[in-house]
Design a protein around this nucleic acid. Structure first.
Length: 589
RNA sequence: GGGGCCGUAGCUCAAUUGGUUAGAGUACCGGACUGUCGAUCCGGUGGUUGCGGGUUCGAGUCCCGUCGGCCUCGCCA
């Protein structure tokens, strides 16, 4: 070892010891011929090392050459800091190391930015020079948290007799779901592997093979556009259990969530985690992953709207749409006319709403708005009543088809929740959303698509609905929601070929197509498939939510930009024509 | 594919209504300094205002295009 201690380790009780530290120069303060201070940094902390005339001519000479981010080895004696110079900001602030020998292990070009800088540089620079960015304390904390979360997950599942099994990265492309990342096969010209969107089918096969508790930290790939919380390459804690029902899987995750919350955040989480049906979530919050850290629930006014002469409301109500709103308590004076205009533009541009109707509740209780004159007094009173409006409130309404009212009001609710600081950003809220619909109607094709995936089991009491009314058929599916983010999702799977075929029928996948694409699964289901189900948790999102981070990029050591490139390695890039030739690939553009 | 924000010194930012020599802090280079810890003080280097075109007597500023970063809708079972 080139060092005896780390830079975060030394305390008053080490005074007098001779030590050797290695690390990077965080800052240095040169007092000329006399004193020179260096804050030496490694991932454990900072230690002030001091060069003085007692350090000897050679060490002093070298110390004077030191610059930001040089890599040093410092040998010296641990000394108490003189009276009045203790630095309470440092864990090691009571001591310093008096240099007797100093080695410059490596120099550093003038860095594009400094890890300790007060102002964070642009994200493009951080990504290009990720090796410097990762030296920053915040990044180290995030990666440490990530490591702790993964360890907690692994420990939990190991304690419950789960077996870690690796599944292939090179697999078969399936046209359902997200766009696949494809890998050309050299051996089979014109044929392609696909990188897994998740190990879904493999883990079902493992259940059928009798490995009744499987777990894996699995890398997944989806070639879709990025968001702050979506990377093309991400990591799931993937698990599957045999001989279980929904409650068993959710119970297993409940325990894990409580464990992680306790160990990493010191939070006591009450179990079981609260559950809400999909229908309730959509009705009360307009979203299947509602942020339950604050109220401001959606309130339906469609029945009242049907009675008004106001054409916008009346037309929507008569046309089968919905009029719903939210009451931003006490927010009347937070939004000027211009502020409301911005909200209007927001719901129009982002969610396709036709407009935003609003009322300000005046001090005398009257509802003030440009559209107020279109409403009869009794109706205004009814609205006020329904919205539980009080002086100072701001009422916002969307009149549109059901889907738009959901999206727009969910958007408004989340935006106002943040802008009005309706919750403490440190609070954590865990819950389940259950009973998702089995199918969604696809306007484009005029057929049904699987809401989760085609292997999801319907609720037992809904089996008949498969044939009579697929729209009302609910799935044995469950999403884990943390602070309004989908942090994981799972289902009980279909384990008999008959039900599986019925679902394929509804999805318009005929027997031949099913055999072609998932023949191996259809076969496996015929060879003794146990009832089984599981879940996948988004590890990156867990880190983001537990760490209170704004972007998934801050939870991943080497993330992609919004345009799915790596600024450090400059991937993706063109390849040599020889490589393409071997793969029988021609680029057409 | 659509909407929005941004791009000026190595970095973070400023620059009046379009106006003459594009500034500051920091980093870097040189010097001073024996208790600093965002050290301080003195001096200095550093600019294709992302790139290309246009309007104008004159463009960092206005217009068009393009590249890049971010947010977002669509998309992501």
């Amino acid at each position: 070892m080139l060092r005896s201690h780390t830079c975060g380790e030394l305390r008053a009780e080490n005074v007098g010891q001779q030590v050797t530290l290695c690390g990077w120069v965080d800052t240095y303060r040169d007092h000329g011929e006399g004193l020179l201070f260096i804050d030496l940094r490694d991932r454990y902390g900072y230690t002030q090392v001091v060069a003085s005339p007692e350090s000897g001519e050679q060490a002093q000479q070298l110390a004077r050459q030191v610059r930001s981010e040089f890599v040093l080895s410092v040998t010296g004696t641990v000394a108490p800091r003189p009276e009045g110079t203790v630095n309470p900001k440092l864990a090691t602030g009571e001591i310093e190391v008096r240099i007797s020998e100093l080695q410059i292990l490596n120099e550093c070009d003038n860095p594009p930015f400094q890890p300790g800088a007060v102002e964070l540089p642009g994200e493009d620079l951080r990504l290009k020079y990720r090796f410097i960015d990762l030296r920053r304390e915040e990044m180290q904390q995030a990666l440490l948290l990530r490591s702790a979360i993964v360890k907690g997950m692994r420990d939990h599942f190991e304690e419950h007799q789960f077996i870690d099994v690796e599944t292939p990265v090179l697999g078969r492309s399936t046209p359902e779901g997200a766009r696949d990342y494809l890998v050309p096969s050299r051996v089979h010209p014109g044929k392609f592997f696909a990188l897994p969107q998740s190990p879904q089918l493999y883990k079902q096969i493992l259940m059928i093979a009798g490995y009744d508790r499987y777990v894996q930290v699995a890398r997944c790939f989806r070639d879709e556009d990025l968001r702050a919380d979506r990377q093309p390459e991400f990591t799931q804690l993937d698990m599957e259990m045999a001989f279980v029902e929904m409650d068993d899987v959710m119970g297993m995750i409940d325990l894990l969530v409580a464990r992680l919350a306790k160990d990493l955040l010191g939070l006591d989480v009450r179990l079981p985690l609260p559950r809400m049906t999909y229908d309730e979530a959509m009705e009360r919050f307009g979203h299947d992953a509602p942020d339950l850290r604050f109220g401001m629930e959606l309130i339906d006014l469609t029945d009242l709207a049907a009675k008004t002469e106001f054409r916008v409301f009346r037309g929507v109500a008569d046309g089968g749409g919905r009029v719903r709103g939210i009451n931003a308590k006490g927010a009347r004076d937070n939004y000027s006319r211009k502020g409301i205009d911005e909200l209007t533009t927001y719901v129009q541009q982002d969610f396709g709403a036709k407009g935003l109707a609003w009322f300000k509740v005046e001090d005398d209780g009257t509802l003030a708005s440009p559209i107020a004159k279109n409403f009869e007094d009794e109706l205004l009173a009814a609205i006020r009543d329904r919205m539980q409006a009080e002086p100072g409130d701001l009422l916002l309404f969307i009149a549109d088809d059901w889907s738009v009212t959901c999206k727009a009001l969910n958007g408004l609710r989340n935006r106002l929740g943040a802008e009005l600081k309706l919750y403490d950003p440190k609070t954590m809220n865990f819950s389940w959303v259950i009973e998702f619909p089995m199918f969604e109607f696809d306007e484009e094709t005029g057929g049904w698509t699987a809401m989760h995936h085609p292997f999801t089991a319907p609720r037992k009491q809904d089996l008949e609905l498969l044939e009579t009314d697929p729209a009302r058929c609910r799935a044995q599916a469950y999403d884990l929601v943390i602070n309004g983010s989908e942090a994981g999702g799972g289902t009980i799977r279909i384990h008999d070929p008959q039900t599986q075929q019925k679902v394929f029928d509804i999805l318009g996948i005929d027997e031949a197509t099913a055999a072609e694409r998932f023949g191996f699964l259809m076969d496996a289901l015929k060879f003794g498939a146990p009832p089984h189900g599981g879940i996948a948790l988004g590890i990156d999102r867990f880190v983001m939510l537990f760490g209170g981070l704004a972007s998934l990029r801050d939870c991943i050591a080497f993330p992609k930009t919004q345009r799915a490139t790596d600024l450090m390695t400059r991937a993706p890039d063109e390849v040599e024509s020889k490589q393409l030739k071997e793969l029988s690939i021609k680029i057409s553009r």
